[in-house]
Amino acid sequence: MNLILFDQPKVHQQLRPVTLTRPISGIRTGILCLHEKWERRFAVTASFLTEEYLSDKFPVKYTSDNLYVNASLLATDILVQAILGLNSGQVLKNNEKVLAWKSELKFAFGELPVGLEVVEFVGQVKLIAQLPDLFLNNAEEIESDFKLLTKGRVSAEINDQHTVVYGKENVFVEEGVNIKAAIINAETGPVYIGKNAVVQEGSLVIGPAAICEDSMVAFGAKIRPNTTLGPVCRVGGEVGNSIFHGYSNKAHDGFLGNSYIGEWCNLGANTNNSNLKNDYKEVKLHSYVTNGLVSTGELFCGTFMGDYSKAGISTMFNTGTSVGVSSNVYGSGFQEKFIPSFAWGGASEGYQAYRFDKAIEVINATMARRGKQLTEIDLKILENINKS
């Protein structure tokens, strides 16, 4: 079986800025990225049918036994069984939504099958199709991934005598974790702490929550429910209903709620975001499809930040803010609700274009601190985003 996770063009646009640098299945929600959830269940490595400018980094692989799965789908055991039951020439649908199909043919990006035998899936289907779906599904996905990752395994012990654990049966700690004088409350949902993670003194972690491999919860942090810190993140202050994709920092005090922060981002000390309007009306968010504000249908909605972006000290993000890739945001007052990629400045001082060569220099300097650098393929992706 050859697993191909296909993006739908409009959905990929709807999930920007998070998907500007990755296919939909590269998004993290719960503990794992979407493609990792499918790969673990199918015991295969996926390839990606996505935007052309991303295809060098995320190529598609075809064979004579191709299984195409909608990249927006959240994996469940029942859905996996239905997909595995498909024969070549069959397509699985749910109320006209194409979930998966099996074919020896090579389909192009944006192309859906016609003329195949339809198999109707009767059951609940959840997809990541809009930005708020990321945090709205995070609690259930943490619980689902927790079961997937810990089944049949035994947690490492928490030996620190000054750490208090509630709901110990719902806590799983990988090897090499360092926890000191913290409070971990898993009575309301599981808490997963990845390999070599650090939870520093005075921290509070309330489940469902995930602290992934090599990440750190800083002194006195308050990690509220439904929060994910991806690999190699440094996070302090108060965070709730939010996801850090990986390699991103918010090391100091400040509030972040109902948000998604991409890779290689940094939020300066006392950076805060609003996630609820004073008039309690539905939050509007910038759409890359309409190039304007659209209603999310949600009362709580925070900040969505693309990869490599940074916020200066005491930055304030408005309710429902979209920040593109590699932007440097700073200054007094609330920032604009939409900050495009490669922008430099703030609402009070004005935004200007961030010199591309300077932006790449800063990105490489940031990545060098973790022993990494941009590849030529990464540079081409960033050039495309900068020109678009």
Score class of each variant (00 low, 15 high):
residue 181 A to G: 08
residue 178 N to C: 03
residue 198 V to Y: 06
residue 170 N to Y: 10
residue 189 G to D: 12
residue 172 F to M: 05
residue 172 F to T: 05
residue 170 N to V: 00
residue 176 G to M: 07
residue 192 Y to L: 07
residue 174 E to M: 14
residue 178 N to E: 13
residue 191 V to R: 09
residue 179 I to T: 03
residue 167 G to P: 06
residue 200 Q to V: 03
residue 194 G to H: 03
residue 176 G to C: 05
residue 188 T to K: 15
residue 199 V to H: 05
residue 177 V to T: 06
residue 170 N to L: 03
residue 186 A to G: 10
residue 198 V to E: 12
residue 165 V to I: 15
residue 202 G to A: 06
residue 182 A to H: 08
residue 173 V to I: 15
residue 179 I to C: 07
residue 196 N to G: 01
residue 192 Y to H: 08
residue 193 I to W: 01
residue 187 E to W: 01
residue 173 V to D: 04
residue 202 G to P: 00
residue 173 V to H: 09
residue 172 F to C: 07
residue 173 V to W: 05
residue 178 N to D: 12
residue 176 G to L: 08
residue 176 G to Y: 08
residue 173 V to E: 02
residue 177 V to E: 03
residue 168 K to D: 10
residue 185 N to I: 04
residue 180 K to S: 14
residue 187 E to M: 13
residue 201 E to G: 02
residue 166 Y to L: 15
residue 181 A to W: 11
residue 189 G to F: 13
residue 188 T to G: 09
residue 176 G to V: 11
residue 176 G to K: 06
residue 184 I to L: 15
residue 179 I to G: 03
residue 164 V to N: 01
residue 195 K to D: 01
residue 196 N to F: 07
residue 189 G to E: 11
residue 164 V to K: 07
residue 168 K to N: 07
residue 177 V to A: 12
residue 176 G to R: 06
residue 186 A to P: 07
residue 194 G to Q: 01
residue 166 Y to R: 13
residue 202 G to C: 09
residue 168 K to I: 08
residue 202 G to M: 08
residue 166 Y to F: 15
residue 196 N to K: 07
residue 172 F to G: 04
